[in-house]
Simulated scan of single mutants.
Amino acid sequence: MNNLVNELQLKIEKLENEISFKNGLISILSHDSKELFGNFLWLIEALEQKTISEEDFFKLLPQVKSDARKNLQSVQDSTAWLKTQYGEFKIKPVKIMVMDLFYHLEEKYAAKLKEKSIKFYFKGESDSFLTTDRLLLEYVLDKIFNNAIKYSLPGQDIYLQEVTSGDQVILNVIDFGTGMNEKYLSTIFSYDNPVFQGTAGEKGAGLSLKIVKNFISLLHGNIQIISAENKGTTVSLFFT
């Protein structure tokens, strides 16, 4: 009887988490879309009615472009999540060399790394590997690594570190950037956490990490974030 009750409680908690995640996703997409298109329509109408000069109109376009990029990222993130919810999507565990993940990040983010003069290094055994779904894991690492670049100052270093402990493989993405205050860290996966600007003014919708946590759950792994203001952030992914 106790086992049945515990099993039901776990299922209820899982459903509650899924409902919270989906409601939060809808809330973010709705808010961002209204904000973006509302601001854009206001600008166009102001220009048509000549309540704003062409000079001021063009001055405001960079902000509209920034908002559009943020909104597009939200759509892309939610699309990635939707692929795991419909159709015949199934986790496809494959053997993945950790060095391949390092090279994937190094190549994909070469321009951003160069733009900020950031050096990217690998720490760990060069022949280490893990068995999991490549699509989801690469998405997770992409988002974490993109944040590491976003919140790093020019000339700083970023590491992808692999640690094997028994049957467990731990991947750490380590940066020495702006970090965050402990009071914000505790709300990083909630839907009311603040959205931070990157060191070069980059913006995010705050959605990626929420989907990252959801994907890590699908992979039966865990995620831990350790951060200190002005000292950097370490994001650890645990796989068995």
Rank of each mutant, 00 (worst) to 15 (best):
V64E: 07
L29H: 06
G166Y: 13
K213M: 09
K123D: 15
G206P: 01
D56H: 03
Y184V: 09
N181D: 15
K114A: 14
T164D: 02
G87M: 04
T187N: 12
I28Q: 05
D32Q: 13
E13W: 02
F176A: 13
L47K: 12
L171V: 14
I96S: 08
S33W: 02
F58L: 14
K108G: 04
E35V: 10
L29K: 00
D167L: 06
W81K: 03
D100H: 04
G204C: 00
A148W: 04
F120W: 00
L218F: 03
I211K: 09
E7L: 12
L113M: 06
F120C: 03
K83T: 08
G38L: 10
E54F: 10
A46S: 14
T178C: 04
K108V: 10
A205G: 15
E16D: 05
Q197Y: 14
L8D: 01
Q161K: 15
S190C: 12
L25W: 00
L113I: 04
I12C: 02
M180H: 12
T240L: 05
V64K: 10
E115H: 07
L160C: 05
L218D: 12
F189P: 02
L61C: 08
K108N: 08
S30D: 10
V98F: 01
S227N: 08
I28F: 05
Y184K: 04
G221P: 03
G155L: 07
K183V: 02
Y139C: 11
V169G: 02
L8N: 01
K183Y: 05
G155C: 04
G155P: 07
M1K: 15
L29I: 14
L207P: 03
A46I: 07
W42P: 00
D32C: 05
D77Y: 06
L171G: 05
K114V: 02
P62S: 10
I216T: 08
E16T: 15
D175R: 11
K210G: 07
L153Y: 10
G38E: 01
D67M: 12
W81V: 08
L141Q: 05
E16N: 11
